[in-house]
Design a protein around this nucleic acid. Structure first.
Lengths: 242, 242
DNA sequence: AAGTGGTCTAGACCACCCC
DNA sequence: GGGTGGTCTAGACCACTTC
């Protein structure tokens, strides 16, 4: 009978909604739960994975299962920086710089950045948290020539703000791709995911006022941590003529 | 050793990339594959699920595993209708109307549609395919009062086009939410997914030229079937003054 | 009726986290 | 070192699809 999976999911859902686990946030261990529900760990784990897919709970590799906090609302079109966006939603943001490298652009990156010659780029990998939970792995690739001495600045702040303040560049236009896919190994490790778990990948290319590509960005989000929010104005609506 | 999962994934990936299965598209059965790899069905299934998460393969409930075709590029900001969008990408689109109902709006829908009184709405559920593969379940909820006699029209076409042609309404503004979550029961059934499988949910609210809410739409996409593509123009870029 | 994936049992060892 | 999830074995029956 497939009733069992449903029953387990139903009961756990109720308990989560009822806030039983919110005090501690951490769920009982898989072994404990499987005994409680008189089933095997595999079946129980499937129920947990189903709730994870729904975005109700999440796991940290070998640390356990936790109740998901409310999703962050993320508007990629807004000019708001990560920290400001998070704080506007009464949450607490933090950024940790993982690695900073300067190297020749790979062929893939060269293509995205529309480089016609072999050029060095800065690669900045960072990890971002909301309320002390790691939710986002982000890598920025910027054309070194446009950003001399970049590495001397504080890279845990907003790069967009840094572009403007120190280099006079504004992000005039962006392109985004949003792709549901699996976490690559390095990302999984950084986000405390098991390898191959689901993430939302966002690839972003930024152009400055002169229409020149400045940098590209690869974001990998824990899928339960956010939702994308977009407000569109149609070209027919005369938005620019008040 | 966790090497086994990786090995299986690696080999299957290679074979898929090499196009071995593309002729027939269907993969061998789980039982067959588990014998080939000398492992259990559970382990093998985990490998398949990992590839599914990556978007390389997909399953249809109790029918088998298939190689995923390339992702459709979906720009929710473009005015393009589903059929036109699909055809612009040299693919073939089709739409099937599942159910059409007229009923009083639930409290949730009333809120989304900003209804201040109890009002009837039309609920249209449709299923959309690309190259004969079902990829999208979509439900539209429209305010009945704005669309008299709507149900007499052909609802397998673009509703946006219908709004314009027969009611003079244009979609002047939209709001989108994009949420990675699990397929609800009805959606899973319609898309041939197992219950609780991952989907990309898009909630959309459309406003007409007068700034009045016209309808809302709930889209559920097979996550391997698409990617979202967005082009933004910053308010600073003077986009309206060429 | 045969074949498929979906669900389930009852165990086991491994790799890593935390104390 | 004890606890956690991650991986794995070797089976079984069920629900549905396909013929």
């Amino acid at each position: 009978m497939k009733t069992q999976l449903r029953t387990i999911k139903g009961i756990l859902k109720e308990q989560i909604a009822g806030g039983i686990y919110t005090s501690q946030r951490k769920l009982p261990s898989e072994r404990e739960l499987s005994e409680l529900f008189k089933t095997t760990r595999i079946t129980l784990k499937e129920a947990l994975i189903a709730l994870e897919t729904e975005g109700l709970i999440y796991r940290e590799e070998r640390r356990g299962w936790f109740v998901s906090p409310p999703r962050l609302r993320y508007n990629p079109l807004s000019r708001s920086h990560f920290h400001r966006m998070v704080e506007e939603q009464q949450r607490q943001a933090s950024t940790q710089v993982l690695t900073v490298k300067t190297e020749l652009a790979s062929s893939e990156i060269s293509k995205v950045l529309q480089l016609k010659t072999l050029q060095p780029i800065h690669r900045i990998q960072r990890l971002r948290s909301v309320d002390n939970r790691v939710v986002l792995f982000v890598e920025n690739c910027l054309i070194s020539a446009l950003f001399p001495d970049l590495l001397h600045h504080d890279l845990s702040q907003s790069l967009t703000a840094l572009y403007k303040k120190h280099y006079g560049f504004e992000t005039a236009r962006s392109r985004f791709d949003v792709i549901p896919t699996a976490a690559p190994e390095q990302v999984a490790k950084a986000l405390n995911l098991a390898e191959g778990q689901q993430v939302l990948k966002i690839c972003r290319v930024n152009y400055n006022q002169q229409g020149v590509v400045m940098d590209c960005e690869y974001e990998y989000w824990r899928p339960d941590a956010m939702m994308i929010e977009i407000e569109s104005i149609s070209p027919h609506s005369n938005a620019c003529e008040p």
